[in-house]
Design a protein around this nucleic acid. Structure first.
Length: 521
RNA sequence: GGCGCUUUCGUCUAGCGGCUAGGACACAUGCCUCUCACGCAUGGAACACGGGUUCGAUUCCCGUAGGCGCUACCA
């Protein structure tokens, strides 16, 4: 094999938002291209005019921009192998369809979709191939003048690939090894439709990959059955020598149940299957996206990379894009479908989230508070984030060990920070923590404690409180912490009590205590 | 139905003829602590089945069963 520059492509169809499985395919192409110092091409396969969805192309481009997957050429990226939109390459395809027709590798068929449907109903397992094509209405069975007349009359037709039966076709797959199939089971695939003057996927795909000098075709396993057809097409064009290598990736499966991952699964189990939120222009339906759910792009990339590929035992599973590029290896891709584990996806996000600086959280946290009807200031929010990171995300325990909390998304913070902004309105006497920490004598103790707090300086800083409270705690031998926490939080959670009361201020702290005493008695 | 791909803990996987079958997520228990879904420690948990090949199979081959995909004038 000659030393060609590695060129791969990701070629979605703009029929809607980009599925997460497609994202993984693109990612693998990107990793492969980068590792080999090659090019990644972005091609739009819009040969099915009926399924075109406005905005899909822009959505896909924005998704990759967010994820940090960069293309070297293609739609919106430039390059000298264009145009990269298949609907703009009609003349090119026409030329190659003619070549196949002229060399007798393809023929014109006039059978209407209705006729074919009828045939399929009539004959069980009907297939348009060597065994049946001589009974159909095509340029093989009709006289030449008749064919010409039909075309001149504007009769719609398709061009079919004439598959030679009884041949063993070999597909050499980088992941699966040699796959052999007999050409007799292939049907005479439609390559071109006169109705819209566009080729089908198969023809356009081969012509474009050849013209764009693609060296490796890395795509989903759903294409494996048609790979032999593609091999045959390369041969028919006389391009067998420069045929790309194939690699068919395992599919992403539902987290539970049978079948491949679908949009429905995301809705049902509450995780996104699209990188970005998508507003369907036709139905108005909104599908959630990883970005809007609070995922970090590095986490999505890391998680996806490991779904169907693994660098082996000597590596951490936390891998940056650069590390992925270095480690990626097609031959180490697994061959069986991978269930989509959204719980683990959240764990990856946790890992990347806690590495972020405090400031990075504030805008998202602010949005979270606003969504919950809280008016606050950026300074206050930054203070809460600091406290939560200190206590909840990362803190040092009594033995000096660094500890971390399980926050997967900034939005997880709301139930953990609500009490900073909203005073407890009621208390659940059945709550384990409250039952254990609020006894008959507690109300009286809290009253006494309030008197002590009254004497703290008005600034109510942590230091001012400690100066007064610590000695009192030591002398009185009371341990007010848990009961105090009930007063201020209403439950057994939250940061260090001094920090919390300092944040709330003297007035609010005492107010909440009085309320708890009145409520719980 | 036909054709193809596939089969290691619940999940993602390591393993490429000889291992107490390893890791990660999840789960359970314990420790720590003024609370918490963290951290640390510990634990339970897998080679689909049946034949071969071999001194020896999780590993190689063949069946069976299960899973997945394709079977359009969609990609």
């Amino acid at each position: 094999m000659s030393e060609r520059r590695v060129r791969v492509r990701f070629a979605p169809s703009p029929t809607g938002p980009l599925h997460i499985g497609g994202v993984r395919t693109a990612l693998y192409n990107y990793l492969f291209a980068r590792q080999h110092g090659g090019d990644l091409i972005f091609r739009i396969e819009d040969t099915d005019s009926g399924r075109f969805v406005p905005g899909a192309e822009e959505y896909i481009i924005e998704s990759f921009r967010w994820l940090g997957i960069k293309f070297d050429e293609g739609v919106s990226f430039g390059g000298d192998h264009g145009p990269y939109r298949q609907s703009e390459r009609r003349d090119i395809y026409r030329k190659y369809v003619k070549q196949l027709l002229d060399t007798g590798r393809a023929y014109i068929a006039f059978d209407t979709p209705e006729e074919l449907d009828a045939k399929r109903k009539e004959v069980e397992n009907f297939q348009y191939d060597a065994s049946t094509r001589m009974q159909m209405r095509n340029s093989l069975t009709l006289p030449e003048e008749e064919v010409k007349r039909l075309i001149d009359e504007g009769c719609q037709y398709v061009v079919r690939f004439k598959i030679e039966p009884g041949r063993e076709v070999l597909v050499n797959d980088l992941i699966r090894g040699e796959v052999r199939i007999n050409s007799s089971i292939l049907d005479d695939k439609v390559l071109y439709k006169s109705a819209d003057g566009l080729p089908t996927y198969h023809l356009a795909n081969i012509v474009d990959d050849h013209l764009m000098e693609v060296t490796h075709v890395i795509r989903g396993e759903e294409w494996l059955p048609s790979a032999p057809l593609h091999v045959l097409l390369y041969e028919a064009f006389g391009w067998a020598d420069s045929m790309p290598r194939f690699a068919h990736l395992p599919l992403l499966l539902k987290p539970v149940g049978n079948g491949k991952l679908s949009k429905r699964d995301g809705d049902k189990l509450g995780f996104p299957v699209f990188p970005l939120e998508w507003h369907d222009p036709k139905t108005g339906e909104v599908s959630s996206g990883y970005r809007e759910k609070g995922y970090l792009p590095q986490a999505v990339v890391n998680f996806l990379a490991l779904l169907g590929w693994n660098p082996g035992n000597d590596h951490s599973e936390l891998l940056s894009m650069d590390e992925l590029i270095q480690l990626f290896d097609l031959s180490k891709c697994s061959r069986n479908g991978a269930r989509f584990d959204y719980i683990k996806a959240a764990w990856f996000n946790h890992q990347y989230l806690i590495q972020q600086p405090d400031e990075a959280w504030v805008p998202d946290f602010d949005r979270l508070l606003q969504a919950n009807g809280i008016q606050s200031t950026p300074e206050k929010e930054a203070e809460v984030v600091r406290m939560m990171k200190l206590k909840v995300i990362e803190y040092t325990d009594s033995e000096g060990n660094k500890k971390k909390r399980n926050i997967s998304f900034v939005s997880d913070l709301w139930p953990l920070t609500r009490f900073f902004f909203v005073a407890p309105e009621s208390f659940d006497r059945e709550d384990k923590f409250i039952r254990k920490n609020w006894k008959e004598t507690t109300a009286q103790e809290m009253r006494t404690f309030m008197e002590v707090l009254q004497t703290v300086e008005e600034d109510f800083s942590v230091e001012s409180q400690k100066a007064v409270v610590d000695p009192w705690v030591e002398k009185s031998e009371l341990r007010p912490w848990n009961a105090w926490r009930i007063c201020l939080v209403g439950a057994g959670q939250g940061p260090d009590m001094y920090e919390l009361s300092a944040f709330l201020g003297k007035e609010e702290t005492l107010r909440r205590m009085q309320f708890a005493i009145d409520s719980l008695g």
